[in-house]
């Protein structure tokens, strides 16, 4: 909606011949103290991998400020596992990490997982998360318009006993690819009901629709929505707030579990 507002205003101004002027400006930003940033997703049956970085002043010289030599410990039910500073590049997904462990996680839904990071300068950050049960996709159906284009209609049931947060992503032909749909939704409109969510008309006969429905913890959902808001606030004068809600104490980023249901369907 915020984007709609901005688009309308700029369109009206442009229509009246008042095209806004742009110019470089010297911004006197206060000195910036870099913070530790961790991004770690635990997934049942997958090895533990994470990236540990530092933030930078917005106008600082470009670099990917990896933080190496830190002590990273994953704790669960009194057991502490140290995640070594071993870089890993996942060729299947194209993601790279600077801490990884070959030990695979076995999801436990009863108790939380805690991540503790202490770097060489003594900075410490901690975060806690837990696994929640995935929510099944009931169906993913291509729906055609009269031009032969199709959108993907995904259906799933919401559990009325609890507040639920979802992220639904759709890709075309390749599972890990640029997203055709990236929807963040909660059950405010449809608590306990069947939820139907459609994409744009981006599919054609012969395509494969890959649908992934993440059942998110509240922490992860708030992180995703506020990151989205912060990116908008950076370019939109009408955006309300740019603060990112993170579950990392002492730093930035996210420590979350990935529980999801995945389905694919060929468009016919």
């Amino acid at each position: 909606m915020k984007r709609i507002k901005q688009t309308y205003i700029l369109a009206v101004l442009a229509g009246l011949g008042l095209a806004a002027c742009q110019q470089d400006i010297d911004v006197d930003l206060p000195p910036y103290e870099p913070k530790l940033v961790v991004e770690c997703y635990l997934e049942d049956g997958q090895p533990v991998r994470l990236t540990l970085l530092e933030s930078r002043g917005y106008l600082d010289v470009a670099s990917l400020p990896l933080v190496d030599g830190a002590t990273v410990v994953l704790s669960h039910q009194g057991q502490n596992d140290t995640i070594p500073n071993v870089p890993f590049v996942d060729r299947a997904t194209g993601k790279s990490y600077n801490y990884s462990s070959p030990r695979r996680i076995k999801a436990s839904y009863e108790s939380p997982y805690t991540l503790t990071v202490t770097d060489k300068r003594g900075r410490t950050l901690t975060a806690t998360t837990r696994f929640i049960k995935p929510v099944a996709i009931k169906s993913i159906t291509p729906e055609f318009n009269n031009k032969g284009e199709a959108y993907g209609l995904t259906k799933f049931d919401d559990n009325p006993q609890q507040k639920n947060y979802y992220r639904l992503t759709l890709t075309r032909n390749i599972r890990v690819d640029t997203l055709s749909l990236d929807a963040l939704l909660d059950d405010a409109f449809s608590n306990g009901e069947e939820i139907n969510w459609g994409s744009g008309y981006t599919f054609k006969p012969g395509d494969t629709i890959h649908a992934t429905l993440y059942h998110c913890t509240e922490d992860y959902y708030k992180f995703l929505t506020t990151v989205q808001s912060a990116r908008q606030a950076n370019v939109n004068p009408f955006a309300a707030s740019g603060e990112v809600i993170s579950n990392i104490r002492g730093g930035l980023g996210i420590f979350a579990t990935l529980t999801y249901d995945y389905r694919s369907v060929v468009v016919k």
């Binding site: 911004v27 930003l29 206060p30 910036y32 870099p34 913070k35 940033v37 991004e39 997703y41 997934e43 990236t51 970085l53 530092e54 933030s55 930078r56 002043g57 917005y58 990917l64 996942d90 997904t93 194209g94 993601k95 992503t169 599972r175 890990v176 690819d177 640029t178 997203l179 990236d182 992934t212 993440y214 990151v227 912060a230 606030a233 950076n234 707030s241 740019g242 930035l252 980023g253 996210i254 979350a256 990935l258 999801y260």
Partner: peptide
């Protein structure tokens, strides 16, 4: 006004490609 003073990188989860 609110103006970002810092920035960091979030690569998103392993199944989301950010080109």
């Amino acid at each position: 006004v609110s103006l970002a003073t810092g920035r960091y990188v979030s690569m998103d989860n392993p199944y989301v490609r950010v080109e």
